[in-house]
């Protein structure tokens, strides 16, 4: 069963991982039958988002299986809006990424809403790191901007049941379960709450081993057709990837 990984990174992290190179990332994709990966560049989240987006753009040009999120930082509203304009013509960038935990902001902030106003017009999805907490703030954004597809990255993390409950109150929040909280049943609970069309496979590679999340989905006692939706079809539709 081929896969599209909607939550990945490139670049270095501050953890003892030996291989951060693009070649190693691609080998990992092949090992786990991942056809496409959508990437937010690690250094864009950790440090200067503009510099990181630029570095990712260079990598994406030569990599047909790699796609990108433009990382935005609401503390820098004008600069973030400029990043949206800069990368809109680039077909390799298929969405946006917000990381409120790392960049220390709340999703109910005015600048977040201003960014979503602009994102609405792009019709592209936003991957939002949603852990710890912030699921209710995400609900507010999702209700206010119902046409923006929002991927709830980590599905609420250690409070995944709250993440699922929030998604169930919307039509535009997608659940993505990767995390260091592999509680049994959470994937099945997600499918039961929002339907198989709004659960996505994301791995957090190159920070986490994709096999960790693949195992969660494989062991969720789901029909093969549903697993195929989660691993592949839902992302293909959401990002409008070519066949």
């Amino acid at each position: 069963m081929k896969r599209i990984d909607v939550h990945t990174h490139l670049g270095n992290w501050m953890f003892p991982i030996r291989d951060f190179e693009v070649a190693g990332f691609r080998r990992t994709m092949q090992q786990h039958r991942i056809e496409k990966s959508v990437i937010s560049y690690g250094p864009a989240i950790l440090y200067d988002f503009r510099e990181g987006n630029r570095q990712l753009a260079a990598i994406l040009q030569d990599a047909p299986e790699l796609w990108g999120y433009v990382v935005l930082n609401p503390h820098y509203l004008e600069e973030s809006l400029a990043e949206i304009e800069k990368y809109l013509p680039d077909p390799k960038f298929v969405g946006f990424k917000l990381h409120p935990e790392q960049n220390q902001y709340r999703l109910n902030g005015l600048n977040v809403y201003k960014l979503f106003e602009r994102i609405t017009l792009t019709k592209k999805p936003v991957l939002v790191h949603t852990f710890p907490e912030q699921t209710n703030d995400l609900l507010g954004v999702a209700k206010f901007f119902p046409s923006v597809p929002i991927i709830m990255g980590h599905m609420g993390g250690n409070r995944w049941w709250e993440g699922i409950a929030v998604a169930a109150q919307t039509e535009n929040v997608y659940l993505e379960p990767c995390s260091s909280f592999p509680e049994a049943d959470k994937v099945r609970a997600a499918v039961e709450a929002v339907g198989p069309g709004r659960v996505l496979f994301g791995s957090d590679s190159n920070l986490l081993n994709p096999g960790f999340t693949i195992g969660m989905i494989e062991e969720a006692n789901l029909a093969d057709g549903i697993k195929e939706q989660i691993f592949y079809q839902n992302a293909k539709l959401l990002f409008n990837f070519p066949a």
Binding site: P16, E183, A184, L208, G215, E219
Partner: peptide, 29 residues
């Protein structure tokens, strides 16, 4: 982590690692 087993094996030795699953709370897979 992507190479967590490999890193621990190389740095500490395989004799320091023990498999466990945290069943029934976590997925064995």
């Amino acid at each position: 982590s992507p190479d967590g087993i490999e890193v621990c094996t190389a740095e500490l030795g395989a004799d320091r690692l023990v498999y466990g699953s945290q069943t029934p709370f976590h997925y064995i897979a």
